[in-house]
Design a binder for these strands. Structure first.
Length: 365
DNA sequence: AAGGACAGCAACCGCCCAACC
DNA sequence: CGGTTGGGCGGTTGCTGTCCT
C-alpha cells in the first residue's frame, strides 16, 4: 500500500549514487529538462526508480543548489519560519533559495534543535522550556480552544490562537460571490502556503491586532519598507483575518511599485480600490489575481476555526469596521509611498452578510 | 590502535493528493 | 465515480566519518 509501482520493480539499484549514475542523470536532465520522472531512469539508462532520480536531482544535482554551511542569517530564518510553519520543510525551504527541504530538515534535526535546547528554548514550541506551571497554563489554553471548537461557540480567551498566520509579505485575500478566494502577494515560490499557526489576535484598543511572528524578518525581506514601530504588532483596522494564503506573489500580478500609478483593482467588479499614488484613478486593473484563485478546498485548514466563530470574531474584533471603512474610503487616495506594496481598500460591501466565506482580508506591512 | 558512541547526511519509505483514465 | 499513477512531502533509516575513551 502506498508503494509506488516503480519501486516494486526488481533489479533496481538502491543506496548511494555513483558518480557515473550522477553523470547520467545530470546529462539527461540538462539535455531534456525535468519531465516525467517515471520515464527518466529508462531514458537516462539508470537502474533506479523515478522517485530516486527525482530526489537525487532535487537534493544534490540541481545546479542552483547552494552548498556549504548555513549562514547565521539562514539559521535565524529557519528558526523563525519553523516557529510559524512547524515541520513544513518544503515551505521553509521555499524561503531559502538554494536550500532543499531535506537539507533544512537534517540541519534542524542535527543541529538547530540542540542549539535551541541549549538556549533553554523548546524546539517544538519555541517557547522557554516549560516548568510544570507553564505546562498547566498551556494545557488549559489548549483545552479551552478545543472545547470552543467542539461547542461551536465564540467564547474566546483574550488572547486567541488562530490556526493561520501571516506570510512574509503583505497578503491579500479576497473572495467573490461564488466563494472563490483570490490571493495575492506573499510567497513567490508557493502558490499557496498552508494555513499555519501561532497567529494571535487580541483586542488592543478596539483595533484588531495580530501578532506577527515574522515581523523581525521584514527588515531583511523588505528593507525598502518601513519597519513597524510596534515591533511585533501590526495594527490592522477593519480586518477580518489575515492569512498566509497567497497567490504566486507580486511576480504574477500587476506590479505595485511606486512607478505604477496605482488604480482600481477589480476583483468582484468594484470591491477594492488600490491606491499607490495620488492619481490613483488613472490606472485600472482588471482581475489581477485570476491565476491565483484559492478554492474553498484549499481554505479548509484555514477554517479549522469554524465559520461561525470567524463571523463572530470578525464582528467583535472589528467593532470599528464601519468607521475604518469610512476612513479608508475617504483616504484611499492618500499617498502611501512609505510602502510600495501597501494597499488601501475601500468600497467594502458592508451590506452583505459577513460570513466566514465572505471575507475581505488584507495585511498591512 | 581499537572500538564504541555520536553526529551529519543521503536516501528510502510510507502516505497524501491531484490528475488522469 | 472509482481505480491507478506520479509527484511531493515529512519521517525515518542506515551509512560514513569523527570523536572519545
Amino acid at each position: 500500500m502506498g508503494r509506488h509501482s516503480c519501486c516494486v520493480k526488481q533489479k533496481l539499484r538502491k543506496g548511494l549514487w555513483s558518480p557515473e549514475e550522477d553523470e547520467k542523470l545530470f546529462n539527461h536532465i540538462t539535455r531534456f529538462g525535468v519531465g516525467c520522472w517515471s520515464s527518466v531512469p529508462k531514458l537516462a539508462g539508470l537502474q533506479r526508480c523515478g522517485k530516486s532520480c527525482r530526489l537525487r536531482w532535487i537534493n544534490y544535482l540541481r545546479p542552483d543548489l547552494k552548498r556549504g554551511m548555513f549562514s547565521q542569517q539562514e539559521e535565524d530564518l529557519i528558526i523563525s519560519l519553523h516557529e510559524i510553519l512547524g515541520n513544513r520543510w518544503a515551505q521553509i525551504a521555499a524561503q531559502l533559495p538554494g536550500r532543499t527541504d531535506n537539507e533544512i530538515k537534517n540541519f534542524w534535526n542535527s543541529c538547530l534543535k540542540k542549539k535551541l535546547v541549549k538556549q533553554g528554548i523548546d524546539p517544538a514550541t519555541h517557547k522557554p522550556l516549560s516548568t510544570d506551571h507553564d505546562d498547566k497554563k498551556q494545557e488549559d489554553s489548549k483545552i479551552m480552544m478545543t472545547e470552543n471548537n467542539e461547542k461551536n461557540t465564540t467564547t474566546l480567551p483574550s488572547s486567541i490562537q488562530l490556526p493561520f498566520s501571516t506570510n512574509l509579505s503583505s497578503s491579500i485575500l479576497l473572495n467573490d460571490d461564488s466563494g472563490n478566494y483570490y490571493g495575492s502577494g506573499g510567497d513567490s515560490n508557493n502558490a499557496i502556503i498552508e494555513a499555519s499557526r501561532d497567529m494571535f489576535m487580541t483586542n488592543n484598543n478596539n483595533k484588531a491586532t495580530f501578532l506577527d511572528p515574522l515581523s523581525s524578518l521584514y527588515a531583511d525581506y523588505f528593507p525598502h519598507q518601513q519597519q513597524q514601530p510596534n515591533n511585533n504588532y501590526h495594527q490592522l483596522s477593519a480586518v477580518t483575518a489575515v492569512t498566509n494564503y497567497c497567490g504566486g506573489g507580486f511576480s504574477s500580478m500587476p506590479s505595485l511599485t511606486n512607478s505604477d500609478q496605482g488604480g482600481h483593482v477589480s476583483v468582484t467588479d468594484q470591491l477594492v480600490k488600490e491606491s499607490s499614488s495620488n492619481n490613483s484613478s488613472s490606472n485600472m486593473y482588471t482581475s489581477p489575481w485570476d491565476e491565483n484563485i484559492i478554492t474553498n478546498k484549499m481554505m479548509e485548514p484555514f477554517f479549522q476555526f469554524n465559520a461561525i466563530k470567524c463571523e463572530d470574531l470578525y464582528k467583535t474584533s472589528c467593532s470599528s469596521w464601519e468607521e475604518d471603512n469610512q476612513e479608508h474610503t475617504h483616504h484611499h487616495h492618500t499617498n502611501n509611498t512609505a510602502s510600495s506594496s501597501s494597499i488601501h481598500f475601500s468600497n467594502y460591501p458592508l451590506s452583505e452578510d459577513l460570513t466566514a466565506a465572505n471575507f475581505d482580508v488584507f495585511h498591512h506591512i
